[in-house]
């Protein structure tokens, strides 16, 4: 197997605050990789460095190397705009664009890239919406506002929007934390399908969720990655005492 994403000795600073300390992580193609840990441990901070979202935060600094498909995304001459197109992101709260229809939301990324052909857009929209298990629910109201959908549908619309640009890696930042249990179950179900077309890194504070859906697990604590390995090992035979405490619910 080849890793699609390789992070090596990543340090992240907010001004003087050292938020992430020397974290290294590999993600294999077609796997779901969960980042877990108590709140404030830096898992979201780390995730956001993987598509250079910290470039947008004044005072934030990322050191170390992160390679996606062999290319150093922080390397000289790399345009963060072109790079982000290959790395999709799904956010904590569903955030469809409120002035766009379901269809326009789905193909927003393609339209940015200059795709104008109606048939092509429609084909991609259908494929992406099917990929996000939303097609059957919205195929009759593609031209309705994306905000008109339920919370769970909105989040799947956001997943479809990210899938439409065919990302190498899909970053998910606690994608179910704002959803009800039924919608959460639906998105968890979707994960096993999604990893057939992309590689997922998901931040979650829900250990059961991590155990259910992920292939590998990374445990974060106070900016350190204290353990990384196959999910089964993390939950059954944790190497680190702190991991054991965390997964057994003793803190966090």
């Amino acid at each position: 197997m080849t890793p699609i994403l390789v992070a090596k000795d990543v340090d992240i600073f907010y001004g003087d605050f050292h938020a992430i300390k020397k974290v290294s992580l590999n993600a294999e193609i077609g796997t779901v990789n969960a980042l877990i840990g108590p709140s404030g441990c830096g898992k979201t901070t780390f995730l956001r460095s993987l598509n250079r979202m910290h470039d947008l935060t004044p005072g934030a600094r990322v050191e170390g190397t992160i390679q996606v498909d062999g290319q150093d995304i922080y390397g000289p001459g790399v345009d963060p705009v072109a790079m982000r197109r290959r790395i999709g992101m799904v956010f904590q709260k569903p955030n469809p664009f409120p002035t766009m229809s379901v269809l326009d939301n789905t193909v927003a990324g393609l339209k940015l890239a200059g795709v104008r052909d109606k048939n092509q857009l429609m084909a991609v929209a259908e494929r992406s919406l099917r990929g996000a298990a939303l097609w059957d629910e919205v195929k009759d109201r593609l031209h309705m506002p994306g905000m008109g959908l339920s919370g769970g549908q909105q989040q799947r619309l956001c997943i479809a929007r990210a899938l439409a640009v065919e990302p190498d890696v899909l970053l998910m930042d606690e994608p179910t934390s704002a959803l009800d249990p039924a919608s959460t179950a639906k998105i968890e179900e979707l994960m096993s399908e999604l990893k057939k077309v992309t590689t997922i890194l998901i931040v979650t504070h829900n250990m059961q969720q991590a155990a259910r859906i992920s292939d590998t697990c990374s445990v974060f604590l106070n900016g350190d990655m204290i353990e990384h390995g196959p999910t089964e090992q993390i939950f059954q035979h944790p190497q680190d005492k702190r991991t054991e405490d965390y997964v057994s619910g003793r803190f966090g």
Partner: peptide, 18 residues
């Protein structure tokens, strides 16, 4: 305008003006 609206567009590979 919520920050995640901007970030969602950035994450799709948009330039600042876009």
């Amino acid at each position: 305008v919520p920050r995640d609206q901007r970030e969602a567009m950035y994450a799709l590979g948009a330039t600042k003006w876009e």
